[in-house]
Design a protein around this nucleic acid. Structure first.
Length: 467
DNA sequence: TGAAATGTTGGGGCG
DNA sequence: ACGCCCCAACATTTC
């Protein structure tokens, strides 16, 4: 009997518990589906389903899915596509294929949990439904502070989570039986009926700027094979990581694995195992693993506090006197503030779909503090332009920088881009790479760093209720 | 996973 | 030789 694998943010063959479960009997065929989902709402006005993918992420998924389709085909599994309401698509597939079981990898945003739970319930009369771990080292409900509830501070979370064992990655499954003719013809019929469609009909490339297609591919090769290649090169990017990770000009100072983890071309435990088995010094391994646990912490938080996507974790920030200004936002987005490190970062983001973490903190600090723009404005821009933005890390990190998040940077930690530039890009290699030596410092800065810093501190004091 | 203001210290120039 | 001032260099405090 056929098994149905619903792929979401787990676009890989290796270390894939749901895929492995589908392939437990090599005589049983497997059909895989990926759905370009919209987001609905439940009766209480809460969102249902995943946050709609940003434009850069859609570009990534399109190319990663194309490669995944070939890799799955090589082990006998057809990958089919649908768009719109995931419940309708799944119901259509289950009605037509009558699979023995449906398998998927769990997701952890509450809005997605609600959708998945309701789908599980509605499919239960027709077939078995099995959900599997795979996208996190530690599922959000497995670590609890002794007082109950959830962790609000990274360090105790990290201490508790790192104690839990992480299993060994699973191998890529062996080939299964190709689907019989009646399955193939059923899939063709579903496609004619419009329940299914082809990858190109998903519209993943529709809304991004037209030139992205040619520029993003200069910087990235989506797909599991390229992800595994990067992981295999761990020694080259992990050596010296704890010292060099803040240098944005150095292409080997960071792993560049974030988009791979975002769409699940790699699992975090594959990454962790590769790091633990590398030749890098223990301090470098620990520093990188710590970053991986930040990712876990963000998912832990989002799972327990879904509002963190749109409202400040620290409630007093609801009254923060932000001063929305479209012109300032536009200058920030387009990298035309006249502040070199910020402009370089914003152009790296726009041209490559990625930005070095140090520069993310600097650009986010400038937007929320010096420019007094709401953190959500920047969060939405990053959501649309980063190839690695995920539902947890993006809002949690923005709130962290803006000072309104869980375990945040203190509000008064305002980055000075000029000092940051001198400290982390002393020779200007990064700034020149993204601004070009000819265009630097030709634009006067839209703001005075010292004066706006004082304004930000005054706005913070006002929120705190002090004159 | 800051920066600026403020405080302290100690060496050296100089009367 | 001594006190005084200046000011880097470093430490502490504050936002």
């Amino acid at each position: 009997m056929t098994s149905l694998l619903w792929l979401r943010d787990d676009l890989r063959l290796a270390d894939h518990p749901a895929l492995t479960a589908c392939c437990s009997d090599p005589d049983d065929p497997v059909v895989a589906v990926w759905i370009h989902e919209g987001r609905g709402a439940d009766g209480k006005g809460r969102p249902t389903g995943p946050r709609p993918l940003g434009a850069a992420t859609r570009w990534w998924y399109h190319h990663s899915l194309r490669e995944l389709s070939d890799r799955l085909a090589a082990i006998g599994i057809p990958l089919v596509f649908a768009r719109g309401d995931s419940g309708e698509a799944l119901q259509g597939l289950v009605d037509a294929l009558r699979p023995r079981a449906v398998h998927w990898t769990r997701r952890y945003a509450p809005a997605s949990c609600r959708l998945d739970a309701s789908l599980k319930e509605s499919l239960a009369p027709l077939t078995e439904v099995h959900s599997h771990p795979g996208s996190l080292l530690v599922e959000p409900w497995l670590t609890r502070p002794s007082g109950g509830g959830y962790y609000k501070v990274f360090t105790p979370f990290h201490r508790a989570a790192a104690e839990l064992p992480v299993g060994n990655p699973l191998p890529e499954p062996k080939a299964v039986a190709a689907p019989p003719a009646e399955v193939t013809s059923t899939l063709a019929a579903l496609r004619r009926e419009g329940v299914l469609c082809g990858l190109d009909e998903l519209g993943l490339l529709d809304d991004g700027p037209a030139w992205w297609e040619s520029t993003l591919e200069l910087h990235w090769t989506p797909g599991e094979q390229a992800a595994l290649d990067r992981l295999a090169a761990v020694d080259s990017w992990l050596a010296g990581y704890s010292d060099t990770r803040n240098l944005p000009a150095d292409p080997l100072a960071t792993s560049a694995l974030s988009p791979r983890l975002r769409c699940g071309e790699l699992s975090p435990r594959q990454a962790l195992q590769a790091v633990r088995q590398s030749t890098a010094a223990a301090a470098d391994q620990a520093a990188w693993a710590r970053q991986l646990y930040w990712r876990e912490f963000c998912w832990h938080l989002l799972h327990h506090v879904e509002e963190i996507e749109w409202s400040p974790f620290r409630p007093e920030f609801a009254d923060f006197p932000y001063e929305p200004d479209d012109e300032l936002v536009k200058a920030w987005q387009t990298g035309t503030t006249g502040i070199d490190l910020v402009d370089a970062g914003m152009r790296q983001l726009w041209q490559s779909g990625w930005m070095h973490n140090r520069v993310r903190m600097v650009t986010a600090s400038l937007l929320t503090k010096n420019l007094l723009q709401p953190w959500k404005t920047g969060e939405e821009w990053f959501w649309d332009t980063l190839v690695d933005a995920d539902e947890a890390n993006n809002p949690v990190s923005w709130q962290w920088v803006a000072g309104c998040g869980a375990d945040p940077a203190p509000y008064f930690r305002v980055f000075n881009p000029e000092l940051q530039s001198a400290r982390f890009d002393p020779d200007g290699v990064y700034v020149t790479r993204w601004l070009g030596s000819g265009t630097r410092r030709t634009v006067p800065a839209v703001i005075d760093l010292a004066a706006t810093r004082r304004q930000a501190l005054a706005a913070y004091a006002q929120m705190r209720g002090r004159p």
